[in-house]
């Protein structure tokens, strides 16, 4: 199995220090260690507030870490890079080449239409504008977003509509590692099934998938290996 690993967390610890509240120290997770292999779905489990989303953000480089290594590689025959040890420019390069991320909430950009929000990461990876928009259109259609919304900026969309735009954006590219933060949270049963099918297709294509799914049905269907984050929780004492 180990030769198929694309993502490895090794002894990762993270805490926040809030200086606005007299340097209150908030430990988040401690000594996190697990692997995700190509073509595998790993589900982060544990109650709310245990640090699941924080782990995804650390892997994306959005949160810094105090200790440990976040090793990743873009293919099975390339070298591992430690995201925690590289420069900001290299983190940006890894986001382009290696890690895809579907955040919990879409950060809408003023005046940019839904279809361009989805097409943007493709264009950053070199797809030409027309092709990127075609792919974006196909994904939004598959996710049952009303066509009338395609050319509108998502700022005024409903929660479920925004989430589908966000999912389309995250799934448009073929990053070897995909991080999913509750992608099915505000979707109805029909769209949940579409997203599950899209996740399964990524798995078949050899993507290493790490996700948070609160929905039992989704977890059962995907049947991934569960990593219980509460075993790494540094908040046991704080809670």
């Amino acid at each position: 199995m180990s030769e198929r690993i694309l993502l490895r967390l090794d002894n990762v610890s993270k805490s926040f220090t809030n200086h606005l509240r007299g340097a209150v120290h908030l430990p988040v997770v401690d000594k996190v260690g697990f692997d995700v292999a190509a073509g595998e779905i790993v589900i982060l489990g544990g109650p709310s507030g245990v640090g699941k989303s924080s782990i995804l953000r650390m892997i994306y480089g959005n949160y810094g870490i105090e200790f440990g290594k976040i090793l990743m590689r873009s293919s099975l025959d390339s070298q591992f890079v430690d995201l925690a040890a590289v420069s900001p420019r290299e983190v940006i390069a890894l986001r382009r080449s290696t890690i895809g991320y579907v955040s919990q909430f879409l950060r809408a950009i003023p005046r940019v239409s839904a279809i361009d929000v989805v097409a943007q990461p493709l264009r950053e990876r070199g797809t030409n504008a027309d092709e990127a928009r075609d792919l974006a259109r196909a994904l939004l259609t598959r996710l049952n977003l009303p066509k009338a919304l395609f050319e509108l900026p998502p700022a005024t969309f409903s929660g479920g509509e925004k989430q589908r735009v966000n999912i389309a954006r995250g799934f448009a590219t073929s990053h070897p590692i995909l991080l999913l933060d509750e992608p099915t949270a505000s979707l109805d049963a029909e769209n949940r099934a579409v997203v599950c099918a899209m996740i399964e297709e990524k798995r078949e294509n050899g993507t290493a998938i790490l996700g948070i799914f609160h929905d039992e049905e989704v977890r059962d269907r995907l049947g991934g290996r569960i990593v219980d984050v509460s075993t790494f929780s540094a908040r046991k004492a704080a809670a």
Partner: peptide, 8 residues
């Protein structure tokens, strides 16, 4: 990184 500085 901009989002790291703003979020963490």
């Amino acid at each position: 990184l901009t989002d790291r500085v703003l979020d963490d």
